[in-house]
Design a protein around this nucleic acid. Sequence first.
DNA 1: TTGAAAGCGCTAACAC
DNA 2: GTGTTAGCGCTTTCAA
Lengths: 346, 346
Amino acid sequence: MAEKNDVTIYDIAAEAGVSVATVSRVLTGNARVRPDKKERVESLIRKYDFRPNTFARNLSNSKTRIIGIISADIRNPFYSNMVVECEIAADALGYTLMICNSLGKKENEYKLLDKLEQQQVEAVILIGGSVDQLVTDLDYAERINRLQEKIPVIIKGKLDGTDCYQVNIDEGKNLSFAMEHIISLGHKDIAFLGGRDDVKSTVDKRLRYRQMLRRYGIPFREEYIINAARYDNEGGYEATQKLFELKKMPSAIISINDFTAVGILHALAEKGYSVPKDISLVSFDNTFVSELSIPRLTSVGYNYKTFGEQLVRCAVEAAEGKAPSHSILIAPDALVIRDSCRNYEQ
Amino acid sequence: MAEKNDVTIYDIAAEAGVSVATVSRVLTGNARVRPDKKERVESLIRKYDFRPNTFARNLSNSKTRIIGIISADIRNPFYSNMVVECEIAADALGYTLMICNSLGKKENEYKLLDKLEQQQVEAVILIGGSVDQLVTDLDYAERINRLQEKIPVIIKGKLDGTDCYQVNIDEGKNLSFAMEHIISLGHKDIAFLGGRDDVKSTVDKRLRYRQMLRRYGIPFREEYIINAARYDNEGGYEATQKLFELKKMPSAIISINDFTAVGILHALAEKGYSVPKDISLVSFDNTFVSELSIPRLTSVGYNYKTFGEQLVRCAVEAAEGKAPSHSILIAPDALVIRDSCRNYEQ
DNA sequence: TTGAAAGCGCTAACAC
DNA sequence: GTGTTAGCGCTTTCAA
């Protein structure tokens, strides 16, 4: 075990009585080889279960066909969905996805960037972390710019001061789907819980939230927008506690994501509110969490598959020098109606 | 972008007026270099933001410090927890984890094995997929044996006909924690829902289930063990439907995992059963799902951190020729008591 | 402490 | 079609 008894192209060549070039040719398929030689080589390859050394290969032609991806944390289903779809898309294009998690630490983002660069990945995709921030670190932007000189960088989100390829979705549009659903059900007192004001996608949604209220002639109440430090169930739970302090409870709540929605559900249940009987709830992301909760959540779904495909397609095209569009917008997501909303009756 | 304008060790050497060997020495730190030269080289490295080409390096010393891991599907929190802990552990030891998903397809397992072998990973870790099967494919075992001749293979699970390194947990022990809790609460009619009889960990649990009943003098009822094709909420839902067909409902249910438990919860709620009022429920894995459901689930927790550490430690030691123990048993997990069980009253 | 040079295993240009 | 050979960028003897 762990011995370097590896068969090389030379061994194969020797035993087959041909040159290494010929072996290489049958390996790459880049040139014609006389059938009988080809057959001899191939049978030797099978015999020794030979696999060409990737490093020698990469060193020689400086193409790794690896795409790096740095996600925030695949334990969050939003990211794992995204990452797996990217993996599938990359595989379909003959690329390998190298998956890394920054786990919420800026220093990890830097470390991973170094690592991927050193691994000679042909493109790097960034989802979550710095690319979610409303205002970008100068330091980070600089690091990315330096990287961009060698390797294309594709992000979901934004990065001021860089010209990364971007693949995004119209968060405002998504918000409007949720709002329209709620409003069509007769709700007017609609709170928006969760999220932070340093996160771009959240800010985009909040902007649209106010805009929608205005459009439908519903008065805006500052106190109905409630921050939460974390995008998880605790965040939802805490935000709901603040909601309880208000004199008037809303009849509907929009939650920044499924996890937060579950926290909201717990908090409401504790206080004796029933969903959807007393309060309706819509959320975003449509992860499996929305299927698991009771009641199941009406949620605006992310189209993970399309997203993954676009991210990877962009990465591959950029890597191959095909100059894809610098800013790709994914078609808006669809609302998946489940059991957490109902008609509002006076 | 994507240009090969990369600075090499030669450029650095030339500009610093030293040989490439010297540059290499400061890079690896494997030999002493006169301070002034060292300083000159280092400043050049900074100046050009130089990073040695990993492939050349690997080719030269045939050490990649990469460990491959093939998990079933990181969209399942059980695997993402495991994988992230492995990633953290690997990083701490100076290794990189290459994460792949077989997504339930045998062919993918083979493809990924090839890919990892070609990438020259120094060890491969297998969790989920073939290693979960009660009886191993001969074909697969053979593939693994061939791989083992070059690279150590570490598995969570089993693989008949191979002598992979194994890191496992005593599933029976875990089951007994769940049972003892339930029994101590006064329950006697205890059903065990979910899981398939071709999965080893499930079979282990079922064996212990019967054993525990015997030990406590509780009659065993065949019909209280219910299979489910899938280990997700649908599996739980379906298994519960079968339970409804029985003349007598149990007072407690043990669920094969958290997802299944949620399906059970949904099915019970539909029929008007309340948990824990009417029926108590315990499950396994203690993923975040058990925190999210209503009621929150009492669950026997996996110690993901320890598991990840042991898996990676074993991989690294084997890779470095240190001959770790061939079979490692993780300390049994702990029961996390939440809100899904209660005392049984006649 | 340092430099020259021989690999590491493969690809591709070049000549035949 | 096929073989020879020059790299690819780095590490590591071996001498000096």
